[in-house]
């Protein structure tokens, strides 16, 4: 822990020396680039954006980069950074922290307070889809900017009372190719059915399978009816586990005992 604190502290020191820090709710700036992935000017631009969004939304949006997780999981690390450096607005510590570690190629999002409400499990997966390809290709600034803008968007949406969640996501752009292909396929199938019916109209000769028309009226008598039970088989299958598609946010408790939401992944 000490080593990690030292790393971050030195990074902080560095940023204090190099840039003009903006101290907001917490004691640290909202961008800590310990892995030094961004250039100075990029850092300034991103920090400005993070500060602007955080102040406006009253929810801390934080980006932290490190070289290594020192054997901890990305999630624990992100939670600890959030807790030890007192990020978050108000009593509930409203905030969303995004951590990436270069050595393990892990990312994690740790949320607290209103951040838990705004970024649901499904919402986090949606975010991950948006930024992982940029992370993978090394476009860190683009990935962080995407994250910041998504957070802004997610918090705004959550304030309406309906956070982005299962069945409630920002609309994706209209996909002309896929829609056209589906329309053509459906059109062809329907046309085949319609013309098939028209073709069928040309055919009127069919063999009769039965002699039902020639059954003497009332001649059918059932004299023996016997239903004999033989045996039974019971098939037992384990019930499928409840899937998480019900929406909402799952939470866990960090090492310092605070409640966090969020999750992690690879890039």
């Amino acid at each position: 822990m000490k080593k990690r604190l030292f790393t971050i502290f030195s990074a902080l020191l560095l940023s204090v020396l190099l840039t003009i820090p903006v101290f907001a709710a917490g004691d640290l700036p909202r961008l800590v680039d310990a892995a030094d992935l961004l250039s100075d000017s990029e850092e300034m631009d991103l920090l400005e954006e993070l500060d602007e969004i955080s102040e406006r939304q009253q929810v801390d949006i934080v980006v932290v980069t490190v070289d290594s997780l020192e054997g901890e999981s990305a999630m624990e690390y992100a939670d600890d950074v959030f807790d030890y450096y007192s990020y978050g607005f108000g009593d509930e510590r409203d905030g969303i922290l995004f951590l990436i570690s270069i050595e393990e190629r892990d990312w994690a999002i740790s949320t607290a307070g209103y951040g838990i409400t705004a970024v649901t499990d499904a919402g986090r997966e949606y975010m991950a889809e948006m930024f992982t390809s940029d992370l993978r290709e090394g476009n860190y600034l683009a990935a962080f900017t995407t994250f910041a803008e998504l957070c802004d968007d997610f918090v705004t949406q959550a304030r309406t009372g309906e956070p982005y969640d299962v069945g409630n996501f920002p609309q994706e752009p209209f996909n002309v190719g896929v829609s056209l292909a589906i329309a053509l396929a459906a059109g062809l199938v329907i046309s085949l059915i319609v013309t098939g019916i028209m073709r069928g109209g040309l055919k009127s000769v069919h063999s009769q399978q039965t002699a039902d028309n020639y059954v003497k009226k009332g001649s059918m008598r059932v004299e023996k009816e016997k239903d004999l039970f033989l045996y039974r088989h019971i098939d037992r299958r384990e019930r499928p586990k409840e899937s998480s598609s019900s929406g909402g946010s799952s939470t866990h408790t960090s090492s310092s005992g605070t409640t966090h939401g969020g999750g992690s992944g690879k890039f």
């Binding site: 059954v215 003497k216 001649s219 008598r221 059932v222 004299e223 023996k224 004999l228």
Partner: peptide
Amino acid sequence: VSRGGSIGF
């Protein structure tokens, strides 16, 4: 299940 009876054609 057994069924028996008659039917006329």
